[in-house]
């Protein structure tokens, strides 16, 4: 058994990473002028990083170390918490304001709640980057959120079945009706049969699978389905960003978390 020794070795080994693509998911003030960052990086996943001295008035990094900005971070780490050395911008940040900004917080909260620390998710990282840019372009923000949610579940190993029903493996028919069972998939709905799951039209399942939503009904169905499925994995603790979003009346202009 060499495992404990190997684990000890990894934990104590100093790791140096140069200019690696990353985003800040969340941040808190730390001690006098430092910040504690929760970083989501392309190849090293999510982890905590301390950025020393960046909250002082003289630091140029203060404005740069914000969520939703693509960054190239350099850090060294020994054990759990990494120490930031440099931060460079990595391309233009998406211009997020209003509902798009709220949606950004929602994405970050999903990542914080559902991804494991130190687990690399390079595909999810790229998808997050794309989703932020779509939100910034203010087109179809709601659709972008649904696709991100789907992709997130897939990357976590909870991928959803959307193109065939799970009883006989038959392709989803747009005009048929289905009941989606969590951790199983869609089952064709026989008339009159009581169903405990999310009921929706085949066309809505196909819309979510393809990312092309032809109408408002398919958007509504996709929202209802994803909300139920996510709630299953999130547990009883509600998403704070969604609660805040909901408490803001009159903001429902094309985006729904």
């Amino acid at each position: 058994m060499i495992a404990p020794c190997a684990a000890w070795d990894t934990a104590m080994k100093t790791e140096r990473v140069e200019l690696h693509p990353a985003y800040i998911l969340h941040h808190h003030p730390y001690r006098n002028s430092s910040r504690l960052l929760e970083v989501f990086s392309r190849d090293y996943g999510r982890f905590g990083m301390i950025a020393r001295g960046v909250s002082s008035k003289r630091s140029r990094l203060q404005g740069r170390l914000q969520p939703f900005r693509p960054l190239l971070l350099s850090w060294h780490s020994r054990g759990e918490l990494a120490t930031m050395r440099t931060a460079e911008p990595d391309g233009a940040p998406p211009v997020l304001s209003g509902a798009a900004l709220m949606s950004g917080f929602y994405l970050n909260e999903l990542l914080l709640r559902l991804t494991g620390r130190h687990v690399p998710y390079p595909r999810l990282f790229r998808n997050y980057h794309r989703t932020l840019n779509r939100l910034g372009e203010r087109r179809a923000g709601q659709d972008a959120l649904r696709l991100f949610e789907c992709h997130l579940l897939q990357e976590l190993g909870y991928g959803m079945t959307l193109d065939h029903e799970v009883e006989h493996g038959r392709p989803i028919q747009p005009e048929a009706h289905y009941c989606y069972h969590i951790e199983r998939g869609p089952v064709e709905l026989a008339t009159g049969e009581p169903a405990n799951g999310v009921q929706l039209a085949g066309s809505s399942l196909l819309a979510l699978a393809s990312g092309q939503f032809p109408d408002q009904q398919s958007r509504k169905d996709a929202l209802r389905l994803m909300r139920t499925v996510l709630a299953f994995y999130l547990g009883s603790k509600p998403l704070r960003s969604r609660e805040l979003f909901r408490s803001l009346k009159g903001v429902n202009r094309g985006t729904t978390l």
Binding site: G63, Q66, P67, F68, L96, S97, G98, L101, M102, G104, F105, L244, L248, K249, G250, V251
Partner: peptide, 19 residues
Amino acid sequence: NPTVEGEATAHYISEQVKD
């Protein structure tokens, strides 16, 4: 402040006060 939280706060207030 021109931070993401400051922007979110500004947005929220403007939605509340506009009407």
